[in-house]
């Protein structure tokens, strides 16, 4: 068998999740570990992308958007529709999906986040949860409950790598994640709009004084976060299939990545995503695949209990 079944590796959690099935017979233990690491970094890149989506909204609003995972799912499913209904090639379908999810992000902000006056955190939590299950429910009506495949962007011929293999799609995933991280850095650090977004988050009133409209910045953050989430959903689709309910786990893992790195910390999330991906992949491969998702949540809880500011985050100044 030439082609390892790494493609079958599903991120979706559920009774049917098997362990990553590599052709272990031909690999030494070290090569296996390497293979797990590669898978880990790939999946971790996705977590990092999703975590960045959380960060963008958190940085401008201090809201944790529980519907973040749905952006990922929508990115994948809209791409499927673009390809099947409009017969678009993948790149165009992807762009269309990214734009579409940005619009959905904007709608979410305008329709659900903005209307309540002076909302408490609990109110906002419940609203974003409501939005998330609303979107999921609608998606199951539109696309049904079956998983959709998206073909790999540049073939499925694995690239040998020190005795292990890298799927071309993995390269795509890591590449896209890298590009998104770098562009977001540029955007927030260099451009006027990006700086304005950060400013309106840190000092909303002061920002308003110099003419920055905070609500517009929030809107922008939802659009941007939608786009990043959609991108994650699109690049991972060829490896995991797309399904209406993939958002729950994706969102939670992304949040987990953000927490590990330190929520709101721009580079921490990349770090957190990769760590989470690797630990999961090693845990699934070496211990038990059934508990793979539990590993992520145990890490999440340990982080929340013992170091809620994340590994890279600084302690917040105490406020009263």
């Amino acid at each position: 068998m030439n082609r390892p079944q790494a493609l079958c590796y599903k991120i979706k959690w559920g009774p049917d999740t098997g362990p990553p099935r590599y052709d272990h017979n031909n690999m030494t233990f070290e090569q296996q570990i390497l293979q797990y690491l590669i898978t880990g970094v790939t999946v971790g890149s996705i977590y990092a992308l999703i975590g960045m989506g959380f960060n963008i909204i958190y940085n401008s609003t201090e809201i944790i958007n529980f519907a973040q995972g749905e952006f990922v799912m929508l990115g994948g499913l809209l791409t499927v529709s673009g390809m099947q209904l409009l017969h678009l090639p993948v790149p165009f379908a992807a762009i269309l999906a990214i734009v579409g999810v940005s619009l959905i992000g904007i709608t979410l902000d305008r329709a659900a986040i903005r209307p309540p006056k002076d909302p408490s955190p609990i109110t906002l939590i419940i609203i974003t949860i409501g939005a998330s299950i609303f979107i999921r429910g609608m998606s199951s009506l539109i696309w049904g409950k079956e998983p959709y495949p998206i073909p790999a962007f540049s073939g499925e011929e694995p690239i040998p790598f020190f005795g292990a293999v890298i799927q071309p799609q993995s390269v795509w995933v890591m590449g896209v994640a890298l590009i998104v991280v770098l562009s977001l850095r540029q955007f927030f650090g260099r451009t006027l709009t990006g700086k304005a977004m950060m400013a309106s988050a840190v000092q909303p009133r002061a920002a308003k004084l110099v003419g920055i409209e905070a609500s517009y910045m929030v809107l922008l953050s939802f659009a941007l976060s939608g786009a990043v989430g959609a991108a994650a959903g699109i690049v991972i689709a060829p490896m995991s299939m797309v399904q209406y309910d993939m958002g729950v786990m994706m969102g939670l893992k992304g949040f987990c990545a953000a927490i590990i790195g330190g929520i709101g910390h721009p580079l921490g999330v990349v770090f957190g995503g990769v760590i989470l991906g690797i630990v999961e992949s090693l845990g699934a491969g070496l211990i038990s695949s059934g508990y793979k998702d539990a590993i992520a949540f145990v890490i999440l809880l340990l982080m929340l209990f013992f170091r809620p500011q994340g590994i890279l985050g600084k302690t917040k100044g105490e406020r009263v």
């Binding site: 944790i64 939590i125 939670l252 927490i259 539990a294 209990f305």
Partner: peptide, 28 residues
Amino acid sequence: IPTLKLHGHYLAMATLGLGIIVFIFFQE
């Protein structure tokens, strides 16, 4: 004891995580 030291979104995520961990145990 550790969970309820958390506030707001963190508490929400932690309890959600606990729920899912227990669920995974039911399955596994």
